[in-house]
Design a protein around this nucleic acid. Sequence first.
DNA 1: ATTTAGCACTCAGAGATGTAGAGTGCTAAG
DNA 2: CTTAGCACTCTACATCTCTGAGTGCTAAAT
Lengths: 347, 347
Amino acid sequence: MDLDSRKLKILGTIVEQYVNTAEPVGSKRIAELLNINVSSATIRNDMAMLFDMGLLEQPHTSAGRIPSHLGYRLYINEIMNCIPLSSEQMAEIQSMFNIMNPDPDKLLKGAAAALADLTNCATIATTFTPESIHISKLQLIPANDNTVIILIIASNGVIKNKVCRVMFRVTSQICEFFTSFVNYRLQGRSLNEISMWYLSSISVDLGEYSRMFNPLLGSVYELCKEINDGQFYIEGQTNLLSYPELANMVGDMLVLFTDKQKILSMLPRDNNDIDVVIGKENNSMELSGSSVLLARYDIGGQKCGTIGLIGPIRLDYARVVPKLQYFANILSSLLTDAFGQQEPRGE
Amino acid sequence: MDLDSRKLKILGTIVEQYVNTAEPVGSKRIAELLNINVSSATIRNDMAMLFDMGLLEQPHTSAGRIPSHLGYRLYINEIMNCIPLSSEQMAEIQSMFNIMNPDPDKLLKGAAAALADLTNCATIATTFTPESIHISKLQLIPANDNTVIILIIASNGVIKNKVCRVMFRVTSQICEFFTSFVNYRLQGRSLNEISMWYLSSISVDLGEYSRMFNPLLGSVYELCKEINDGQFYIEGQTNLLSYPELANMVGDMLVLFTDKQKILSMLPRDNNDIDVVIGKENNSMELSGSSVLLARYDIGGQKCGTIGLIGPIRLDYARVVPKLQYFANILSSLLTDAFGQQEPRGE
DNA sequence: ATTTAGCACTCAGAGATGTAGAGTGCTAAG
DNA sequence: CTTAGCACTCTACATCTCTGAGTGCTAAAT
């Protein structure tokens, strides 16, 4: 029971037909589509074998066949030929990036939105923060008499700010003092090191100012945590509404998408160039009808985030995979360009 | 053909029953629910009149009746008694606000999310920027050798930043120069005044530095525009999935919600305490099956944003209206408290 | 050993038919 | 003005039948 080239071609045809039409594919149709001159009966025999091997499924006795998980898997791993992007497509994508806001988090969001547009899928973009991400700069900015703004710039380009009301009367002097004192202690330090414990050691060193600044240190901790937890964008969710086979689940999917922690925990971690998780391979009810593709981008060679795509199982993998890869590559080069080599300057 | 009190009671009962069950209400059920001792036949006669007056609709001949637009309108304006919040409910809402991030835009988003939770509707929160909103402070912060961050604080508490790559080598001196020069020209100025034209007059005054700083002034303009365009949050969209009568439209609604401009243009501008727009009164396909309620909040008496609610037509108006009103009141008081009286301090 | 034609078989989906139940509208009497 | 009574209408649901698509198997052909 081996897979000769005809059987592979049949499986490929079934996948590609099903991807286009969302309808089970029958032996007669395959016979017409394949150039080989064999009758539908022969195809039926082959299909029966593919079925026995678990590569095909049958919605009901008298229907055509659709690919199973394993069928898609085999198709993706062995059969499909990725269709590389044309130079026009590349140019189009490039120009989408050109008009995006270059802030890293907005860039990420923009990239996700563009990818969603291009693939008619939902897309997801995340950052994760390897050890090496540190604080480039912290600044305390007076807003009014009893309100200050804490601004933190991380070495991966992420910028966060937070408004804090304080009990003392805000002056520029106080802000400058806090800024330079805390900067001195935090600048260049890995985000992972900035624990509540470490901050409390700063608090001790602040001596008489400690009580005054403690709430601010708490906010600093929250900001660091936010950056460390990573950014997270989902775009193009409404694209999923266009797939009738997802109609039952799309509600649950949208609800899932509101739960950042849960969705993050579900993303694949296989660390291939592109991870592909098909249907029930996702260990989650809500995604059992979908495929998830995930690629990584890096800054200066250091992996620092993912961009991915959530769509129906019947996805045009041969076209979508190169697109996703290209997006990851562009993100890498843009971010490396902006935040790659340079170390932050001191004030 | 006048509306005696019995007819009003019947209409009220129909609305309230329909809101609970989503099923047409028949004469027999009404007879049971009303305390008045009249037979279902009498009720039928009254219902026929209400129908003739356009206050009721009939899904099909042998079904009960459901309220029409006009029926809901009359109910809301004349019949319903708002059910005020209990002190426990108020306390619960207060405590939701206590744990929110006090940044005005995050507060807005948090409030919208809490309201969505509480009402099982989608919620919308916007700011709009009256004449009086001005720039409290602008600051240029060096990020690395060729990257700076522009930070703008507006008098309504909104904070925006933008990363800019520049052609010159960034130093603190340059940043301080730009900050103080531009601050001097912009601080306290209404956002509406900050046109491209006005900025170019600053550019002229910058003399030899003009070419260097022009891209930054462009970014300043974009930031002002962003603030002026207002914030915009929609939360709890997935709540709409729980109403079977919206199942057909919820897809289109979700798509609509991604189009900020379009949805903003659809919000009512009647400027009542709370505007209520029912079903087809919305001049939009997508919202023809929904009701939109909108309240305004203010900072120090100056109206500066809206919070609202999008749900099915059969909404428990008597409970929902007071909730929405209460949210608007809390927002007003919190924001006034934080940003109301104080003028921004100079550096 | 592989391929093919032929045919019986299965099943989903669309239509047709029938029934029960809810609710109305009307009429005539109270 | 209210009510009882009754014929009428329409939906929702279940049952049945028919049709077409597509299979699985067998026996013959290559």
